[in-house]
């Protein structure tokens, strides 16, 4: 892939940083995760319809 193709992609170039590994195990934003779980318990996923665009 050349530079022009890279620049036109929507997926960003990401630099891997091992120092961020520690945040993976930390319970960050736990209140939002709890809220998400509560919503999802009540609502679930979108119902499948054929005409989603």
């Amino acid at each position: 892939m050349n530079i022009k193709e890279l620049n036109s992609k929507k997926t960003p170039i990401v630099t891997i940083d091992k120092s961020l590994e520690k945040f993976k195990k930390q319970p960050l934003f736990q209140d939002k995760v709890d809220k998400a779980n509560e919503i999802l318990r009540n609502v679930g996923l979108p119902k499948k319809k054929k005409h989603y665009s």
Binding site: S8, V14, T15, D17, K18, L20, F23, K24
Partner: peptide
């Protein structure tokens, strides 16, 4: 979406990003 963005760092599983 060709909007200006900040450079991104992430750990290898791409679950945590920083900018």
């Amino acid at each position: 979406m060709k909007l200006p963005k900040y450079p991104l760092k992430a750990e290898k599983s791409l679950m945590v990003f920083e900018f």
